[in-house]
């Protein structure tokens, strides 16, 4: 997927100003809260499962552009997928962040972060929501 900076910026802007799947998370969701001391992003991600399908993903909290947009994009990508497919997508995302070969087509809009690895101080922002999703998916698959 060829993607220039202008396009990447537009994707991020879009998901930051109108985040998908953002809003309060009630008790019917399994959720995990992520906050770190070195970074000021502070978000909670919640998921609902239907057997092995990720039926819904939501997140809430405060964060910078990179945190909110990456969480929004990935929540959209994994929603409706099977747990294994979702884990695979997250794996691809991490490969991208680690500058390893990855499946560009599968990551769709998340390719907007394909140079985030160059900004060491922002990697945390671009992975905090994804880390939460990873935890929830793994807990569902393997148990706590």
């Amino acid at each position: 997927m060829m993607i220039d900076n202008e396009f990447k910026r537009a994707i991020i802007m879009d998901h930051y100003s109108k985040p998908h799947n953002k809003g309060s998370i009630d008790e019917s969701y399994k959720s995990v809260h992520m906050a770190s001391d070195s970074c000021i992003d502070d978000i909670t991600v919640g998921m609902k499962f239907d057997n092995d399908i990720v039926k819904d993903v939501r997140f809430d909290g405060v964060g910078c552009t990179i945190c909110i947009s990456s969480t929004s994009i990935m929540s959209e990508l994994i929603k409706g997928k099977s747990i294994d497919e979702a884990l695979k997508l997250i794996d691809e995302y991490y490969k991208m962040i680690d500058e390893k070969p990855y499946d560009e087509d599968a990551l769709e809009e998340a390719n907007a972060f394909n140079t985030l690895s160059k900004q060491a101080n922002r990697i945390k922002c671009g992975t905090i929501g994804i880390k939460a999703m990873n935890i929830l998916l793994r807990e569902e698959k393997y148990g706590k």
């Binding site: 930051y16 140079t115 985030l116």
Partner: peptide, 10 residues
């Protein structure tokens, strides 16, 4: 601007 901030992270 917000645009410039995002650009700085790309």
């Amino acid at each position: 601007t917000l645009q410039k901030c995002i650009e700085a992270a790309l």
